[in-house]
Nucleic acid binder design. Structure first.
Lengths: 246, 246
DNA sequence: CCTTTGAATTGATGGCGATCAAGATTTGTA
DNA sequence: TACAAATCTTGATCGCCATCAATTCAAAGG
């Protein structure tokens, strides 16, 4: 991942609210000059959100786009009879919203406590027109999301329950600790409760729970707190997720 | 869908090979001026491909990107033990290939007879830099693909076998006949054989076959030739795909 | 024409994960 | 601290879809 056109400037040129913000590095704001950043920051609003409350109120109805500052956002699709499927998970500094396009039946909800940095749609769309690099960054994020969606299509369509859970743990691990450590052991904090994991993997809560104890009995993981899991062997977990060998 | 910056010009300004080409309308070539089209057409090569032969030889190794002129291309992901999942279907005038990004374990294969229009990667990437509208079109296609992938995540994760098959038939129908006719009846030609449909829906060949006869017995479809299917009630098929009611 | 090969259908059986049900554990609240 | 509500775990049973197997059908080539 490259920093693109981001200029190397003194922090003093950069708006206070943006100085420590991840969106200036991996996110779309990295495409902006300090002067543009200053202009944009005049219109931004920071908000906090609790789990399981739809971000729509803030995002859709109030006509804003947002950067995720912290926390995890789940994108969900619903069927009329109540069945649901999580079709994407987003982490800081991902961009939330769909310029040039509709949201096509996807609902965004906070999975954990979430902090957002939001801007009016009209303002951001103007910035995109002025700065093609911004659309390029958005394009790159969407390609990453497409790759992730396809990876999960394979998981949903072809993997067994235990393989699905193993794949999920590895996906979370890769977000917690992007640079793979040398160590084969790793502690992760699950950002999703069991019902969310089930909705993500196309399983039931009970099956998720059973496969976690299954992994524990195999000695591949330890479950401390319900949300805190120690992966005792990344290798074994990888083999399980990709080859299906126990 | 808008034609964007495409100029309204006499066909005589447009290279012969491009005149009847769909890619000038829905596809990325619509972003180009006649003079650019002429320049690009000097480097293009048209090729034909038979089903189940990887397009990689032509596409990856020979370092080209392509527009689909006709036919259907399947994007497949593979597991080491042979399990596979189709993660995308592409129709004319879709663009094949991934500028700025890797292909991330996806293999492109012809599902039917396919004709492509290919250009060297370097040439196309130069055009994209000169013409931001071209990246915008590519971005739009990727957003469509993302929406489709998420739609199929719901199908793969949460629908039953018969619902999956119904959803598949409707998806094909929407590509054959984008403008929904008034009629509740419609004949479609399946571009995929049963094993492809199975790999697309996360099922086995046998289950696909059984659910097709199941739909036939319910009077919702007729099966003529194995590839030719008459949808006798689009309404009933829609209800089945989205609500799961029989 | 018959043979060969691949594709699709149909049937019989079994296993994985859903469903139903009860407890256990955690979290929030009076 | 005690109670209540939510979340998670564990157990028993059932049903959908995979698997195994045989047959039918279609297309291709000698």
């Amino acid at each position: 991942m490259n920093d693109g056109k981001r200029k190397d400037v003194h922090n003093s040129d950069i708006p206070l609210v943006c100085q420590a913000c991840e969106a200036r590095h991996g996110g779309i704001c990295g495409a902006l000059e300090p002067s543009q950043l200053l202009e944009l920051s005049k219109h931004t609003q920071r908000t906090a959100h609790s789990p399981d409350i739809a971000l729509e109120r803030q995002a859709e109805r109030k006509e804003v786009y947002s950067n995720i500052l912290s926390g995890v956002v789940k994108l969900t699709k619903l069927m009329p009879d109540g069945r649901q499927q999580i079709v994407g998970l987003q982490f800081a500094p991902d961009f939330l919203g769909r310029p040039f396009s509709d949201n096509n039946g996807v609902v965004a909800e906070a999975a954990t406590n979430v902090r957002l940095c939001s801007f009016p749609k009209a303002v951001l769309e103007q910035f995109i027109k002025d700065q093609p690099e911004m659309e390029h960054r958005l394009h790159e994020q969407h390609m990453r999301e497409l790759d992730e969606a396809r990876e999960w299509m394979l998981t949903l369509g072809r993997k067994t329950a235990i393989e699905k859970v193993a794949s999920f743990l590895l996906m979370i691990a890769s977000h917690i600790d992007p640079e793979k450590e040398e160590s084969d052991e790793l502690e992760i904090e699950l950002p999703l409760k069991r019902s969310d994991i089930a909705d993500f993997l196309g399983l039931t809560i009970e099956t998720v729970s059973r496969q976690l104890t299954n992994l524990r009995k195999k000695g591949i993981i330890d479950v401390n707190d319900r949300k805190s899991i120690v992966i005792k062997s990344l290798d074994q977990l990888n083999v399980l997720a990709e080859y299906g060998t126990s």
